[in-house]
Protein backbone atom coordinates (compact mmCIF):
# COMPACT_ATOMS: atom_id res chain seq x y z
CA UNK A 1 0.00 0.00 0.00
CA UNK A 2 2.64 2.47 1.10
CA UNK A 3 4.95 1.20 -1.59
CA UNK A 4 2.50 1.71 -4.42
CA UNK A 5 1.49 5.11 -3.05
CA UNK A 6 5.10 6.03 -2.91
CA UNK A 7 5.71 4.92 -6.47
CA UNK A 8 2.85 7.10 -7.65
CA UNK A 9 4.35 9.97 -5.73
CA UNK A 10 7.75 9.47 -7.26
CA UNK A 11 6.26 9.22 -10.73
CA UNK A 12 4.23 12.32 -10.07
CA UNK A 13 7.33 14.10 -8.86
CA UNK A 14 9.24 13.01 -11.96
CA UNK A 15 6.51 14.18 -14.33
CA UNK A 16 6.00 17.46 -12.54
CA UNK A 17 9.66 18.10 -11.94
CA UNK A 18 10.29 20.51 -14.79
CA UNK A 19 7.01 22.36 -14.29
CA UNK A 20 6.85 23.11 -10.56
CA UNK A 21 9.63 24.73 -8.51
CA UNK A 22 10.54 21.25 -7.33
CA UNK A 23 8.60 21.10 -4.06
CA UNK A 24 8.69 17.50 -2.80
CA UNK A 25 6.04 15.71 -0.78
CA UNK A 26 6.98 12.39 0.77
CA UNK A 27 5.05 9.83 2.77
CA UNK A 28 7.63 8.20 5.05
CA UNK A 29 7.60 4.73 6.61
CA UNK A 30 5.70 5.89 9.67
CA UNK A 31 2.98 7.20 7.40
CA UNK A 32 3.89 10.84 8.04
CA UNK A 33 3.58 13.29 5.18
CA UNK A 34 6.61 15.53 4.88
CA UNK A 35 6.86 18.44 2.47
CA UNK A 36 10.17 19.94 1.41
CA UNK A 37 10.23 23.23 -0.48
CA UNK A 38 13.07 21.84 -2.61
CA UNK A 39 15.21 18.71 -2.66
CA UNK A 40 17.30 18.52 0.47
CA UNK A 41 20.96 19.47 0.41
CA UNK A 42 21.99 19.79 4.02
CA UNK A 43 21.10 16.36 5.31
CA UNK A 44 21.76 14.91 8.75
CA UNK A 45 21.64 11.15 9.14
CA UNK A 46 20.63 9.53 12.42
CA UNK A 47 21.81 6.03 11.51
CA UNK A 48 25.04 5.07 9.81
CA UNK A 49 24.44 1.72 8.11
CA UNK A 50 20.88 2.24 6.96
CA UNK A 51 20.78 5.96 6.17
CA UNK A 52 24.27 7.38 5.73
CA UNK A 53 25.54 4.72 3.32
CA UNK A 54 22.49 4.98 1.01
CA UNK A 55 22.81 8.78 1.00
CA UNK A 56 26.51 8.59 0.10
CA UNK A 57 25.75 6.09 -2.62
CA UNK A 58 23.02 8.30 -4.06
CA UNK A 59 25.48 11.15 -4.20
CA UNK A 60 23.63 13.16 -1.58
CA UNK A 61 26.54 13.46 0.85
CA UNK A 62 25.15 14.06 4.36
CA UNK A 63 26.69 16.91 6.33
CA UNK A 64 26.61 14.96 9.58
CA UNK A 65 25.96 11.43 10.68
CA UNK A 66 25.55 9.09 13.60
CA UNK A 67 28.55 6.79 13.94
CA UNK A 68 30.27 4.42 16.29
CA UNK A 69 33.39 4.57 18.40
CA UNK A 70 36.30 2.28 17.69
CA UNK A 71 38.37 0.82 20.51
CA UNK A 72 40.87 3.68 20.18
CA UNK A 73 38.13 6.28 20.58
CA UNK A 74 38.00 7.31 16.90
CA UNK A 75 34.55 7.55 15.34
CA UNK A 76 33.69 5.54 12.23
CA UNK A 77 30.73 4.83 10.00
CA UNK A 78 29.95 1.15 10.28
CA UNK A 79 30.54 -0.69 6.95
CA UNK A 80 30.93 2.56 5.05
CA UNK A 81 34.61 2.45 4.13
CA UNK A 82 34.09 -1.10 2.94
CA UNK A 83 31.11 -0.25 0.74
CA UNK A 84 31.53 3.40 -0.26
CA UNK A 85 35.14 4.20 0.58
CA UNK A 86 33.93 7.12 2.66
CA UNK A 87 34.32 7.59 6.40
CA UNK A 88 34.64 10.46 8.87
CA UNK A 89 38.42 10.62 8.38
CA UNK A 90 38.29 11.25 4.61
CA UNK A 91 35.16 13.36 4.22
CA UNK A 92 33.43 16.45 5.59
CA UNK A 93 30.74 14.43 7.33
CA UNK A 94 30.54 15.61 10.95
CA UNK A 95 30.26 13.03 13.71
CA UNK A 96 27.23 13.72 15.92
CA UNK A 97 27.33 10.89 18.43
CA UNK A 98 26.78 7.21 18.96
CA UNK A 99 24.12 5.92 21.37
CA UNK A 100 22.36 9.26 21.80
CA UNK A 101 23.01 11.79 19.07
CA UNK A 102 23.89 15.38 19.95
CA UNK A 103 20.76 17.26 18.97
CA UNK A 104 22.36 20.63 19.70
CA UNK A 105 25.06 19.94 17.16
CA UNK A 106 22.33 19.01 14.70
CA UNK A 107 20.49 22.27 15.38
CA UNK A 108 23.69 24.25 14.95
CA UNK A 109 24.28 22.66 11.53
CA UNK A 110 20.91 24.00 10.30
CA UNK A 111 20.02 20.97 8.21
CA UNK A 112 17.18 21.09 5.71
CA UNK A 113 16.44 17.41 6.21
CA UNK A 114 16.97 14.85 8.97
CA UNK A 115 16.65 11.15 8.14
CA UNK A 116 16.22 8.63 10.91
CA UNK A 117 15.46 4.92 11.10
CA UNK A 118 12.35 3.49 12.69
CA UNK A 119 14.21 1.60 15.44
CA UNK A 120 16.33 4.55 16.58
CA UNK A 121 15.90 5.83 20.12
CA UNK A 122 15.88 9.56 19.25
CA UNK A 123 12.23 10.66 19.32
CA UNK A 124 11.02 11.91 15.95
CA UNK A 125 9.05 14.61 17.76
CA UNK A 126 12.34 16.24 18.79
CA UNK A 127 14.02 15.90 15.41
CA UNK A 128 11.00 17.49 13.72
CA UNK A 129 11.57 20.67 15.73
CA UNK A 130 15.04 21.04 14.20
CA UNK A 131 14.26 20.30 10.56
CA UNK A 132 11.85 18.34 8.35
CA UNK A 133 12.39 14.70 9.33
CA UNK A 134 11.67 11.51 7.47
CA UNK A 135 11.67 8.07 9.06
CA UNK A 136 12.70 5.05 7.03
CA UNK A 137 12.15 1.39 7.84
CA UNK A 138 15.23 -0.52 6.77
CA UNK A 139 13.42 -3.87 7.05
CA UNK A 140 11.64 -2.95 3.82
CA UNK A 141 14.93 -3.27 1.94
CA UNK A 142 17.34 -1.11 0.00
CA UNK A 143 15.22 -0.40 -3.13
CA UNK A 144 12.38 0.94 -1.00
CA UNK A 145 14.65 3.06 1.21
CA UNK A 146 16.59 4.39 -1.78
CA UNK A 147 13.38 5.39 -3.53
CA UNK A 148 12.35 7.41 -0.50
CA UNK A 149 15.74 9.03 -0.06
CA UNK A 150 16.05 9.75 -3.79
CA UNK A 151 12.70 11.51 -3.78
CA UNK A 152 13.76 13.65 -0.83
CA UNK A 153 17.13 14.62 -2.31
CA UNK A 154 16.24 14.85 -5.98
CA UNK A 155 18.59 12.01 -6.89
CA UNK A 156 16.02 9.93 -8.78
CA UNK A 157 18.36 9.49 -11.75
CA UNK A 158 21.10 8.08 -9.55
CA UNK A 159 18.58 5.79 -7.86
CA UNK A 160 17.46 4.45 -11.26
CA UNK A 161 21.06 3.87 -12.28
CA UNK A 162 21.85 1.93 -9.08
CA UNK A 163 18.63 -0.04 -9.28
CA UNK A 164 19.12 -1.05 -12.91
CA UNK A 165 22.69 -2.08 -12.16
CA UNK A 166 21.41 -4.34 -9.39
CA UNK A 167 18.64 -5.77 -11.58
CA UNK A 168 21.17 -6.53 -14.34
CA UNK A 169 23.56 -8.23 -11.91
CA UNK A 170 20.66 -10.20 -10.49
CA UNK A 171 19.59 -11.28 -13.97
CA UNK A 172 23.12 -12.41 -14.77
CA UNK A 173 23.24 -14.47 -11.62
CA UNK A 174 19.83 -15.99 -12.26
CA UNK A 175 20.95 -16.97 -15.75
CA UNK A 176 23.70 -19.17 -14.30
CA UNK A 177 22.03 -20.29 -11.08
CA UNK A 178 18.49 -21.57 -11.02
CA UNK A 179 17.25 -20.02 -7.80
CA UNK A 180 13.84 -21.70 -7.77
CA UNK A 181 15.59 -25.10 -7.63
CA UNK A 182 17.83 -24.25 -4.67
CA UNK A 183 17.04 -24.14 -0.98
CA UNK A 184 19.15 -21.70 1.01
CA UNK A 185 19.35 -20.75 4.65
CA UNK A 186 20.98 -18.04 6.73
CA UNK A 187 21.94 -18.59 10.35
CA UNK A 188 24.81 -18.32 12.79
CA UNK A 189 25.83 -19.81 16.14
CA UNK A 190 24.87 -17.86 19.27
CA UNK A 191 26.26 -19.35 22.48
CA UNK A 192 24.64 -22.77 22.33
CA UNK A 193 21.74 -21.64 20.17
CA UNK A 194 21.22 -20.78 16.53
CA UNK A 195 20.29 -17.31 15.38
CA UNK A 196 18.19 -17.85 12.26
CA UNK A 197 17.46 -15.05 9.83
CA UNK A 198 14.71 -14.50 7.29
CA UNK A 199 17.10 -13.72 5.92
CA UNK A 200 19.59 -11.09 7.05
CA UNK A 201 19.36 -7.72 5.38
CA UNK A 202 21.38 -7.43 2.13
CA UNK A 203 21.93 -11.17 1.67
CA UNK A 204 18.26 -11.77 2.44
CA UNK A 205 17.18 -9.16 -0.09
CA UNK A 206 19.24 -10.82 -2.81
CA UNK A 207 18.02 -14.30 -1.93
CA UNK A 208 14.38 -13.22 -1.93
CA UNK A 209 14.69 -11.06 -5.06
CA UNK A 210 16.31 -13.93 -6.94
CA UNK A 211 13.54 -16.30 -5.89
CA UNK A 212 15.45 -18.85 -3.83
CA UNK A 213 13.50 -21.19 -1.61
CA UNK A 214 13.98 -21.45 2.16
CA UNK A 215 13.51 -24.34 4.60
CA UNK A 216 10.04 -24.30 6.21
CA UNK A 217 11.51 -23.15 9.54
CA UNK A 218 12.80 -19.98 7.88
CA UNK A 219 9.67 -19.51 5.79
CA UNK A 220 7.67 -19.21 9.01
CA UNK A 221 9.70 -16.23 10.23
CA UNK A 222 8.24 -12.84 9.25
CA UNK A 223 10.24 -11.28 6.43
CA UNK A 224 13.34 -9.40 7.56
CA UNK A 225 13.29 -10.75 11.13
CA UNK A 226 15.21 -13.36 13.05
CA UNK A 227 14.52 -15.99 15.71
CA UNK A 228 16.74 -17.89 18.12
CA UNK A 229 16.25 -21.65 18.05
CA UNK A 230 17.75 -24.63 19.82
CA UNK A 231 20.77 -26.29 18.24
CA UNK A 232 18.60 -29.40 17.99
CA UNK A 233 16.91 -27.80 14.99
CA UNK A 234 20.16 -27.81 13.02
CA UNK A 235 19.02 -30.42 10.44
CA UNK A 236 15.87 -28.35 9.80
CA UNK A 237 18.18 -25.63 8.53
CA UNK A 238 20.09 -27.75 6.06
CA UNK A 239 19.96 -26.46 2.50
CA UNK A 240 21.89 -26.46 -0.76
CA UNK A 241 23.86 -23.54 0.52
CA UNK A 242 24.13 -21.98 3.97
CA UNK A 243 25.20 -18.39 4.57
CA UNK A 244 26.65 -17.45 7.94
CA UNK A 245 27.10 -13.68 8.49
CA UNK A 246 30.17 -13.84 10.73
CA UNK A 247 31.55 -11.01 12.90
CA UNK A 248 33.94 -9.39 10.42
CA UNK A 249 34.78 -6.60 12.87
CA UNK A 250 36.91 -9.01 14.88
CA UNK A 251 40.30 -10.41 13.98
CA UNK A 252 39.93 -13.70 12.12
CA UNK A 253 36.18 -13.48 12.62
CA UNK A 254 35.38 -16.21 10.10
CA UNK A 255 37.71 -18.68 11.78
CA UNK A 256 36.27 -17.75 15.17
CA UNK A 257 32.77 -18.34 13.79
CA UNK A 258 33.70 -21.81 12.59
CA UNK A 259 35.34 -22.50 15.94
CA UNK A 260 32.16 -21.37 17.73
CA UNK A 261 30.06 -23.67 15.57
CA UNK A 262 32.55 -26.50 16.14
CA UNK A 263 32.45 -25.99 19.92
CA UNK A 264 28.68 -26.20 19.85
CA UNK A 265 28.37 -29.10 17.39
CA UNK A 266 31.70 -30.88 17.14
CA UNK A 267 32.09 -31.96 13.52
CA UNK A 268 28.92 -30.08 12.54
CA UNK A 269 29.72 -30.44 8.86
CA UNK A 270 28.68 -34.07 8.86
CA UNK A 271 25.11 -33.10 9.68
CA UNK A 272 24.75 -30.47 6.96
CA UNK A 273 24.78 -31.48 3.31
CA UNK A 274 25.55 -27.88 2.34
CA UNK A 275 28.65 -27.99 4.49
CA UNK A 276 29.75 -31.41 3.23
CA UNK A 277 29.50 -30.06 -0.32
CA UNK A 278 31.66 -27.07 0.52
CA UNK A 279 28.71 -24.70 0.55
CA UNK A 280 28.73 -23.42 4.13
CA UNK A 281 29.61 -19.88 3.12
CA UNK A 282 30.88 -17.34 5.63
CA UNK A 283 29.94 -13.85 4.56
CA UNK A 284 31.32 -10.74 6.28
CA UNK A 285 28.63 -9.18 8.44
CA UNK A 286 29.88 -5.65 7.80
CA UNK A 287 28.79 -6.11 4.19
CA UNK A 288 25.75 -8.30 4.67
CA UNK A 289 24.26 -5.99 7.33
CA UNK A 290 24.04 -2.96 5.06
CA UNK A 291 20.86 -2.29 3.15
CA UNK A 292 22.68 -0.66 0.24
CA UNK A 293 23.14 -1.32 -3.46
CA UNK A 294 26.88 -1.67 -2.88
CA UNK A 295 26.20 -4.48 -0.44
CA UNK A 296 23.58 -6.01 -2.74
CA UNK A 297 26.15 -6.12 -5.54
CA UNK A 298 28.63 -7.91 -3.35
CA UNK A 299 25.99 -10.35 -2.17
CA UNK A 300 24.92 -11.16 -5.74
CA UNK A 301 28.54 -11.96 -6.54
CA UNK A 302 28.90 -14.15 -3.46
CA UNK A 303 25.72 -16.07 -4.22
CA UNK A 304 26.81 -16.61 -7.83
CA UNK A 305 30.23 -17.87 -6.71
CA UNK A 306 28.65 -20.17 -4.15
CA UNK A 307 26.09 -21.73 -6.49
CA UNK A 308 27.46 -21.26 -9.99
CA UNK A 309 28.39 -24.29 -12.07
CA UNK A 310 31.83 -25.81 -11.49
CA UNK A 311 34.03 -27.89 -13.76
CA UNK A 312 34.21 -31.65 -13.28
CA UNK A 313 36.80 -33.04 -10.85
CA UNK A 314 36.15 -30.12 -8.53
CA UNK A 315 37.15 -30.61 -4.89
CA UNK A 316 37.64 -28.05 -2.14
CA UNK A 317 41.02 -27.72 -0.49
CA UNK A 318 40.84 -27.14 3.27
CA UNK A 319 43.64 -24.54 3.24
CA UNK A 320 45.25 -22.55 0.43
CA UNK A 321 48.01 -24.71 -1.10
CA UNK A 322 49.86 -22.17 -3.23
CA UNK A 323 50.61 -25.01 -5.66
CA UNK A 324 50.36 -22.97 -8.84
CA UNK A 325 52.98 -20.38 -7.88
CA UNK A 326 56.58 -21.55 -7.88
CA UNK A 327 58.61 -20.36 -4.89
CA UNK A 328 61.00 -17.52 -5.68
Amino acid sequence: MIRSGLLTLILAALVMAPAVARAVTIVDDRGRTVTLTRPAERIVSDYDIDVTIPLIELGAMPIASHGRLAGDGKPYLRSSKLLTGIDFDNSDIAFIGAAEIDLEAVAALKPDLIVTEISRATPVEKLEKLAPTIVINSDLGAPHVYALLAAATGKEAEFKRLDSRYRAQLALMKAEVQPEKHVVSVFQPLRGKLNVYQSYRAIGQVLRDAGFRFPPLIDDIPEGQSIVVSTERLPDLDADVIFDPYRSDRKQGARAEIAAMERMVPGFCRFLSACRNGRYILIPREEAISNSYAALSRMVAIVQTALGPRPPGYRTAPEPTGLAIPAR
Binding site: A98, A99, L190, R191, G192, K193, S230, D249, R263, M264
Partner: peptide
Protein backbone atom coordinates in the same frame (compact mmCIF):
# COMPACT_ATOMS: atom_id res chain seq x y z
CA UNK B 1 26.32 -3.38 27.14
CA UNK B 2 24.42 -0.30 26.03
CA UNK B 3 27.60 1.01 24.44
CA UNK B 4 28.47 -2.33 22.82
CA UNK B 5 25.72 -3.90 20.73
CA UNK B 6 27.63 -6.97 19.62
CA UNK B 7 28.68 -8.06 23.10
CA UNK B 8 25.07 -7.56 24.17
CA UNK B 9 23.95 -9.92 21.42
CA UNK B 10 26.60 -12.42 22.43
CA UNK B 11 25.81 -12.37 26.15
CA UNK B 12 22.09 -11.59 26.28
CA UNK B 13 20.97 -15.14 27.06
CA UNK B 14 23.85 -15.97 29.37
CA UNK B 15 23.23 -12.74 31.28
CA UNK B 16 19.80 -13.90 32.41
CA UNK B 17 20.83 -17.48 33.07
CA UNK B 18 21.03 -20.03 30.30
CA UNK B 19 22.26 -23.61 30.56
CA UNK B 20 22.53 -24.15 26.80
CA UNK B 21 25.48 -21.79 26.46
CA UNK B 22 28.50 -23.95 27.07
CA UNK B 23 28.13 -27.45 25.79
CA UNK B 24 30.22 -30.37 26.91
CA UNK B 25 33.51 -28.50 26.71
Amino acid sequence: LILNEDTLEQLRFWLVGDAAGGGAA
